[in-house]
C-alpha cells in the first residue's frame, strides 16, 4: 500500500483536499478501503481521515427526523437507545456487519459510500426512506438514498463531496420494521440475500410498506410488487406467502461463489415472508 495521509479535522478542509486530488479518498473506519488497498483494487493517492470532524458525528433527533452522522460506527448505532426506539431495523442491520472488531471501526457513512450490493446497513436505511446529506465544493445537498446509490460500488457523489450523514423519519406508533440476512455463516458473512421492511399500519391492515431486498441486484432494490400487493391487506399467512412470492419475483439475483441466482431469488421472497411473519406476531 502506498498513499499520502491527511487528517484535516475540518469539513471544509477535507472537502478541499478531496476536490484538489481526484485520486484522493476519504478514510473513516478503514474496513473497506484498507482491504481494497491491501488487495490492490483501490489505489488512492491520499487518504483523507475524516476523524474528528464534528458535523459527521452524533445520533440525534432534529426537526422531526433522526440524524445519524456518517462517522458513527456500527457499534455506535447498535448501542443507541434513540435508535432502539426509533429505528430498531437499522440496529438489526448494523449488528450483522462483520464482527465486533469491524463494527467498532466501520461507519455507516463508509457503508454507504462503499455501496456494496450486499451491505447490511443499506437495506434498512432504504426501507426507512432515508435521505443522504452531502457536503462538497458546491456546498450542501441532499439526495434520497435510492438516488444516491447508482450501482456496484458506485454512488452519486461528485468529486470532493463527502457524506455528512443520513436522516429519516422515526418509526411511528403504528409502524414496525424488520431486517433479515442470509449468509454463509453467522458472523463475518457477506449477505447472500437480505431483506428489510418498514410497514405502516392502519388498524389491522397495512397502510403502506417499503420492502427492500439486498444482495440480489446491483444496488439494494425495492420489492415493488410485494409492496403494492400488501397495501390495504391484513397480514395473514396467505397474504404473507403471496407477498413473499411477489418479492421473489422482484429479485434480480446473480450467481457467484457464494450462491446461485435461483436460490437467492427464492430466499429473497422467503426472508420477506419471515420478516412479515415477525411483524404480524409482534402485533398480535
Amino acid at each position: 500500500m502506498r498513499f499520502d495521509y491527511s487528517r484535516p479535522r475540518d469539513l471544509a478542509k477535507a472537502v478541499e483536499l478531496l476536490s484538489r486530488d481526484p485520486e484522493a479518498r476519504p478514510l473513516a473506519g478503514g474496513t473497506d478501503i484498507l482491504v481494497g488497498a491491501q488487495e490492490g483494487t483501490a489505489r488512492p493517492s491520499r487518504l483523507v481521515d475524516l476523524a474528528g470532524i464534528p458535523e459527521l458525528e452524533g445520533i440525534r433527533e432534529e426537526d422531526g427526523k433522526i440524524f445519524v452522522g456518517a462517522a458513527v460506527t456500527h457499534a455506535g448505532i447498535c448501542a443507541s437507545p434513540l435508535l432502539a426506539a426509533a429505528a430498531p431495523l437499522l440496529i438489526e442491520g448494523c449488528a450483522e456487519v462483520g464482527s465486533p472488531q469491524i463494527r467498532n471501526r466501520g461507519t455507516i457513512g463508509g457503508n454507504l459510500v462503499n455501496a456494496s450490493p450486499a451491505a447490511d446497513g443499506i437495506p434498512p436505511l432504504l426501507a426507512l426512506g432515508a435521505e443522504v446529506r452531502i457536503f462538497g465544493p458546491a456546498g450542501a445537498r441532499t439526495l434520497l438514498l435510492e438516488e444516491f446509490l447508482l450501482g456496484v460500488k458506485k454512488t452519486a457523489l461528485e468529486p470532493g463531496e463527502v457524506v455528512v450523514g443520513v436522516a429519516f423519519a422515526p418509526l411511528g406508533p403504528d409502524e414496525a420494521g424488520f431486517f433479515l440476512k442470509l449468509g454463509q455463516r453467522r458472523a463475518l458473512a457477506i449477505a447472500k440475500v437480505s431483506a428489510a421492511g418498514r410497514v405502516a399500519f392502519a388498524g389491522a391492515a397495512v397502510k403502506s410498506a417499503r420492502i427492500v431486498l439486498g444482495a440480489v441486484a446491483v444496488t439494494a432494490v425495492r420489492a415493488a410488487s410485494a409492496e403494492a400487493f400488501l397495501e390495504g391487506k391484513e397480514l395473514t399467512p396467505e397474504t404473507i406467502a403471496e407477498a413473499g412470492r411477489l418479492a421473489a419475483g422482484d429479485s434480480r439475483a446473480i450467481a457467484d461463489i457464494r450462491s446461485t441466482a435461483a436460490y437467492r431469488d427464492e430466499m429473497a421472497g422467503l426472508l420477506v415472508a419471515r420478516g412479515l411473519e415477525r411483524l404480524a406476531a409482534s402485533r398480535s
Partner: peptide, 8 residues
C-alpha cells in the same frame, strides 16, 4: 473460504 465462527 468459509470457516466456522464461534456463532456456528
Amino acid at each position: 473460504y468459509i470457516l466456522p465462527t464461534s456463532l456456528d
